[in-house]
Design a protein around this nucleic acid. Structure first.
Lengths: 216, 216
DNA sequence: AAAGTATGATTGAGCGCTCGTTCATATATG
DNA sequence: CATATATGAACGAGCGCTCAATCATACTTT
């Protein structure tokens, strides 16, 4: 045997897998693996999900799995990144054509809370799992996570002073943006408790009053 | 010897350790172990903290460690429980003599946010780590966690209609209670980002306006 | 006081096991 | 035959946890 295991040669960039030639195949299967993994992570968490489970769920052998993904950590990164992109995209769609008056802002909020409700599992997963990423990747993902707050902040800044909107000072804008994104995500966190008392629509309605109250 | 290892006699209730006789000693050392563990969990997280690290940090051997604690999971439970009690106690103190007017509520909020700032690491740890508890214990801890929201809800209910307070409907009280506890804890979550723009005092001031705005 | 004994407390090498990862081999494709 | 892809047994690092052995101290006995 005398294999020298010392030339570890670990793949550093998580984007690049090992040896399979057909790039379309790779893309498709990676996507498939990520989807399977997300489901497993949601139900069992990161640490209790083994690579064997992942392989099985995706319909591969462990060996094949490692043709498409360079490590479990890599997979974790991909999962975080994918979920974030989905959430970000959904939020951006919800905020489309968001120049307007009070009623428009209310609609934006309604859509955003809806997104948080639909993607609750994913949002929760991101919060739980980001902490296990290596610091450098963590930063990349977390920076993105904050972007959702920033989306609201820039949106509010655009609205400020126009139509029926009062001119908002920076502090207020920042905090309102923060509160919006947080109160949405808190629905994901505390859903099971809150659902005993509110539907998502009621929650949305009251929180909207709440937020509009601060602005007007 | 011919010891029959079969009489496993595992301790079920996490409160009860194994064989050391002096109960005061046990209490004191447990406390010491828990404190050391909290620090380790905060810096490394639950899974990356090994029992060997814990023993070392507490100044024991692994063997001794297991005289005071029946398993790593047990220790996790104790950590969660302890932190929760500390937070709960701090919050209750902050809400002492909370019958009064607008100004009193404002003071209560100020105190609460202060607690969240002081105990930020602990609050964060609880959120991160509860998920690794066995389900049955999870419920016990999480139920408690929600108590903090409930403290605000009952406090608000007591204030409702008295002094300068308007009569608040149930829905509003519930949601305001929820928002208060959440916005405080969010300071712990997003401290590093928020601190770039706000001091805890500024944050408190604006959020207080925010919350009072909804009530009045 | 000295020697003997019983008991509580401490230790750390090592057991059993899990799980991420690899690689020699098999199979499919062209 | 050559090349691309798939497989899962085997590896070994690392972990939680145990327990026979050792130390420390108090209590008895002579």
């Amino acid at each position: 045997m005398t294999k020298d295991r010392k030339n570890k040669q670990r793949v550093v960039d998580p984007e690049v897998p090992t040896q399979i030639k057909n790039p379309d195949l790779v893309r498709e299967r990676r996507r498939h693996i990520i989807d399977s993994t997300v489901t497993l992570f949601i139900t069992h968490g990161y640490h209790k999900t083994t690579t064997r489970m992942i392989a099985r769920a995706a319909g591969f052998s462990v060996g094949s799995l490692y043709e498409y993904v360079s490590s479990k950590e890599d997979l974790l990164y991909l999962v975080c990144k994918t979920i974030h992109e989905e959430v970000q995209k959904a939020v951006e769609e919800a905020l489309a054509d968001s120049t307007g008056d009070k009623a428009v802002l209310a609609r934006v909020l309604r859509r955003y809370f809806k997104v948080c409700d639909n993607m609750a599992d994913h949002i929760l997963l991101m919060y739980q799992v980001t902490q296990f990423l290596p610091k450098k990747w963590q930063k990349r993902v977390l920076t993105n996570e904050l972007n959702i707050t920033d989306i609201f902040i820039t949106t509010l800044n655009q609205m400020s002073g126009k139509n029926s909107f009062p001119v908002l000072e920076d502090n207020i804008v920042n905090l309102v943006g923060h509160n919006i994104s947080v109160l949405g995500q808190m629905w994901a966190f505390r859903r099971w408790h809150l659902q005993k008392q509110f539907t998502i629509d009621q929650y949305t309605a009251i929180q909207t009053d709440f937020i509009l109250g601060l602005i007007f």
